[in-house]
Amino acid sequence: MNPMSIPLRQVPPVPAVKPAFLRLESLYKQFGKYEVLHDVNFEMSKGEVVAIIGPSGSGKSTLLRCINQLEPPTRGRIRLDELDIDAATPMARADLLKLRRRIGMVFQSFNLFPHLTVLRNVSLAQVRTLGRSEREADARSMQLLERVGLADKAGHYPARCSGGQQQRIAIARALALEPQLMLFDEPTSALDPELGLEVLAVMKELAGEGMSMIVVTHEMHFAETVSDRVVVMAEGRIIEQGPSAQVMRQPRHERVSKFLQAVRNR
């Protein structure tokens, strides 16, 4: 049976146990005529780690990018703590800054600034947006680089670091702004498996420290063992979400079991 022919059913969001920290209400995103996100409802509580999985083109990355308004949603509502953003009303610049101030993001392609040293990459936004002095920022950056195991690379340029190292630097750069929520957009997809592991190790540590994280990933082991909850998307919709073990071991939706089977048999 063609998996595409299985009808998609919207599942109601699983209510989070603790009060919602992030809440997405009927989020839609359209690129021209093409609908990338369809009525997405989702909530998570503070300290939760949520993995978003699903086939390519299912809207995972777009969903992540809608949360921090890199792609403004076409319709719907985003609540983050007391911030309440309705796509229908134009967003005040102050609100956008407040939203982004609380959200760190790590990209598949790292996106470090190639013309700045590793240290400067981590320090720049601290100086520019938090108003820290160069010295304060550098001291904080060194702590973070130590934490991701790369203090010895501080004076190097990103081009001289491996992909795994660059991604760990990107994580340090995002953490430097002290976000309350970290978004990871396929952070290991551009890395070979070994280098991916060192990035996953840093993420696992971060999760252990209670950071709220949403991770778009194809790493099923990470989704199953590190995340508290797994969200499965297909064709712009959330088709299943629930505790990791349940979704990964006993998915309710046939489309999900097909997807998981395909990934595991690869």
Partner: peptide
Amino acid sequence: GQYEAAHVLNLSAPQRFFDV
């Protein structure tokens, strides 16, 4: 990705231009 990184780091328009 350079612009996106600058955006998510909350750099202002002049900062994005001159720093990045």
